[in-house]
Design a protein around this nucleic acid. Structure first.
Lengths: 215, 215, 215, 215
DNA sequence: CATGAATGAGACTTCATTCAT
DNA sequence: AATGAATGAAGTCTCATTCAT
């Protein structure tokens, strides 16, 4: 018998736990919370169902653990991509690239966060909402900084900035899906599209130019 | 026995069917496809379960019927809000207002389309994707028209326009949620925010101005 | 095909419900609450498991329904056997005979009440305790009445009477088991044994005679 | 590495075994055989589950061991309380006091014997039945001795004596519960109540006096 | 002496769906 | 036009029990 062949057994808890979470992300992403079965997840993870329960306690806990892990990974990736000493526009650009890169590399994690977690009741939605708030706040801060840096305009109406940030994040979410699904659209390209879009809107906002019906 | 007394209410099929669809929209929106039960829907509709099966055939068919009805209603609302003889920017403005108004007035329908239908497997996602394509195509056409009207620039790269449209629709979806959940943000205000955002980005695009790192 | 052959199907709810309760009494009596399985009960009742759940809602509810039905039947049997216009001793005699007869005829019901219901947590034990209190109160009243009728001694200490009633009921419960398990011991005989035992103790009590160590 | 430090406590087998049995008595008394889990017992005993299996082999064996230990303790307590050279009535009195004292001091053990062991199938019930037979035989012998001593009446019908003993033991069991649960009822008091009750019944029996309906 | 890692089997419960009236 | 009666299939979760160290 070759070395290490056969069914690998007896692994440290931390390793097994990661395998389970990996299987769960994939399953939840593809089927949704309800349609995913603990049986299926256990099988995909290569362990028996009781072990999943022993380590993750319940389907709800498992889903929560998945959401937390993926949310943390995404937020960390974006933060890690940003150099706080750079100008705001460069930070935004870096953040967008990190965001699109991460979502492209972890499509299942992104699907869980964007689609599944938000459609299955308060407890899970709240978890994701917290992460989204974190990102929206980050973007909001950048927009404020950009305004100050570029034009010395410290007094953009908060409501407008919030709306802009919401639109920006929503656009990013939508483009992440588009880039994942459309052949040949790279993370960089998606980031560029959005950056142009955003920067122009921001410039307008700061110049006080608004679109006006009839004009 | 008097006429029409007792508990049994004989109603024409069309009416009954609408009651069932109404109950289904509400239930699917709140619970999701899997967690919604035919029992619950039948009860909410005030009919017995076999009747639901008689008219709608299966849970899958029922969900599909719901998606189709709500998608049709949304598309129709947007189309009805737009006057094709107006300039492209006015059309876009009108379309956005119609979109935000309709989603605000039909939150359950919107939740089914935006959240639920996309998270429960191909058959349903495809149904919604078709509608989304219709709207994206509509927006894309408007952008093209706007480019021609305003700047005589008929040759925007198709890929850029598609990206822009994706971003725009995503931003609209995000803002719809924001407007629904944030105290005091009206449909009109959301539409204005987005219009500013979009029009500026569009202008940039048409002028060939791009954001450039380091510059 | 003969009439009524084949698997009997489609029965009115009340009938099915009784069949299920009958199966449940038998199963719970033999196996206890935890060891009894809903599968087994459904099979014994000749129905599918979902039907049991449709009508009885849960294992806990089913057990409670069983306890209530059997407790009610026992109390009713005892009450029905007693003629309130008779002297207290005759009433006691009649009550004991009814008790032993009923427990002999419904050994499973008696086992559920006496053994199973008391060993599976508060909710069930409370149900039975209430019934037992009813019987103890009834016996206590009879003892008081007997004291007044026979000896004009209205002032037996309450604590003594309560202890006597407890002992009497306990003895009856024990004898019911004995009579059920011992070949050839009839309900009447058990009742007679206990009646002698009780009546003598009662007489002693009323005459103020006590057993005293060393005398 | 120093000797015996750290968390591991090496203890002689006998000690560990007693800890396990103690945990088991408590757990079985509170939850019943089925609802008690080996996990819970191991945890309460402060050992790992495999050790429980190493020493006690299986849940069934563990329960049996518990029953045997508690039954032996109860029988021993009663026997130890009795001085065989005394008159029968004094022996009975001493036995009753020992019984009520022991059950009051070991409520979990008593609950296992009285409630749990009898409700979970033949193997366990038989174990307890044997102990009960031992006590009933002991009481039966005392009653016979009392009859001879007091009245020189050696010929009480065996059936009557058996019934009396059954009633007496049942009453004792019932009173043990009552004394445990009722504020301020001591073991001694319970024993006195029962002694009065029993002695009177016994006297009646020996005098050939019977309660007769209508007389 | 002692345990962390692991599982086969079975429990309760729910649901989409149909049949006979 | 409408429903009370009924079920096959599947899902979450727990438990007694065993290896390998």
């Amino acid at each position: 018998m070759g070395a290490g062949a056969g069914k690998t057994r007896r692994m440290p808890r931390a390793v097994r736990e990661r395998q389970m979470l990996d299987a769960a992300v994939r399953t939840f992403a593809r089927l949704g919370y309800r349609a995913a079965s603990m049986d299926g997840i256990a099988e995909l993870a290569g362990v028996s169902k009781p072990l999943v329960y022993l380590y993750l306690h319940s389907k709800e806990d498992l889903f929560t653990a998945v959401i937390r892990r993926e949310a943390r990974a995404l937020v960390d990736a974006v933060r890690a991509g940003v150099e706080p000493s750079l100008p705001a526009d460069a930070q935004l650009w870096a953040g967008l690239r990190a965001f699109f890169t991460h979502t492209a590399e972890h499509p299942d994690g992104w699907a869980v966060l964007h689609h599944q977690a938000r459609t299955h009741g308060e407890p899970f939605a709240a978890e994701v909402a917290a992460m989204r708030e974190e990102i929206v706040a980050f973007v909001t801060a950048l927009i404020g900084a950009a305004a100050r840096e570029a034009h010395g305009t410290p007094d953009l109406p908060a409501r407008d900035v919030a709306g802009l940030a919401q639109a920006l994040v929503g656009a990013a979410e939508s483009l992440a899906g588009w880039a994942n699904e459309t052949e040949g659209v790279s993370a960089k390209e998606a980031a560029a599209t959005l950056m142009n879009f955003a920067w122009a809107g921001l410039g307008n906002l700061m110049r006080g130019e608004r679109w006006a019906a009839g004009r």
